[in-house]
């Protein structure tokens, strides 16, 4: 049921037009951060206001929306954002990745491959991949203009010199279509390969920082690395204890105060789907445990 006190999808039409223009420019220049006049939303900055504004600008009444945080549909902030759009846009919602037409996410890309017709909207805290190397926007903007990404390579190389490997495990920087270095949002680097040549449209919204950027479908996205230290997508060296999946990203759950722990899929829909299909892990009910 839509709340009639608000315009469809909350934002007024002028704001949506402004965001929509920014989205089209973002798609035209993949990986480039388009400034937009982010609005104050009824949820706090840092809690997904950029993603919410992008979703609001893209939603149609026919959409089926899925919202995840940490890969899970039932985390509190995901529940809160999903309720917001049920109330203000009256759209159908789902937890099934395959049924969703728009998926708003924080920190994960679903395990199930996305397809044409789907849009993945990322919530982004700090869109500037160079920000922690150079705090000034005036400087980083110039670095993007000049394709001056040496600083980033120096940082990664220093990691190797000190630790023997690149010590960045999430928000791992990528280069888009050979031009712009981009922050993929704080997804674990395990998810980075899914950014590239993805059939879905990927949109990134940073509300507080007032930036929108995008990856069109089938866009080439390369994780930064060195020939002698190639990028590797890593995860915990375990299988899911509930569904037995060997290739999904895992959460480590502490089960007691004596060092007991288990590993479960971070993508709750993926895990539930596998369990429903009869897959069982080490600790599943009726499983091999």
């Amino acid at each position: 049921m839509t709340d009639q006190a608000y315009n469809f999808a909350y934002l007024d039409e002028q704001t949506k037009r402004m965001i929509r223009r920014a989205l089209l420019k973002a798609l035209a220049v993949p990986g480039y951060q388009v400034p937009f006049a982010s609005r104050e939303m009824p949820m706090p900055y840092g809690w997904g206001t950029g993603g919410v504004q992008v979703t609001a600008a893209c939603l149609t009444p026919e959409d089926v929306l899925k919202v995840i945080d940490q890969g899970a549909d039932d985390t509190t902030n995901a529940v809160s954002i999903r309720k917001f759009f049920q109330r203000t846009a009256g759209v159908a919602v789902t937890e099934a990745t395959g049924e969703a037409t728009i998926i708003q996410t924080r920190h994960r890309i679903p395990e199930q491959p996305l397809k044409a017709g789907q849009i993945l909207v990322y919530q982004v805290p700090i869109p500037e991949p160079l920000r922690f190397l150079e705090p000034r926007e005036t400087e980083t903007r110039k670095m993007h203009e000049l394709e001056e990404y040496g600083l980033m390579h120096v940082k990664l190389y220093e990691d190797i010199a000190r630790h023997g490997q690149i010590a960045t495990s999430y928000a791992y920087p990528v280069k888009v279509e050979g031009r712009y270095v981009m922050d993929p949002s704080p997804i674990p680097k395990f998810d980075n390969p899914k950014l590239s040549v993805n059939p879905a449209i990927q949109l990134f919204g940073a509300g507080r920082e007032q930036r929108i950027y995008a990856l069109p479908p089938f866009c080439n996205v390369v994780s930064l690395d060195f020939d002698d230290h190639p990028f590797r997508a890593t995860k915990a060296a375990h299988d899911c204890d509930l569904c037995g999946a060997k290739d999904s990203y895992l959460d480590e759950v502490i089960t007691d105060d004596a060092g007991g722990r288990m590993y479960v899929c971070s993508d709750t829909d993926f895990c539930a789907g596998r369990q429903a299909a009869g897959h069982a892990g080490r600790l599943a009910a009726g499983g091999k445990a």
Partner: peptide
């Protein structure tokens, strides 16, 4: 119906620009 019509139209434009 401006809000809904423009939402559907934008989606077509988004897909057209993305593909």
């Amino acid at each position: 119906a401006p809000a809904r019509d423009s939402a559907r139209a934008f989606r077509a434009l988004l897909e057209a620009t993305a593909r």
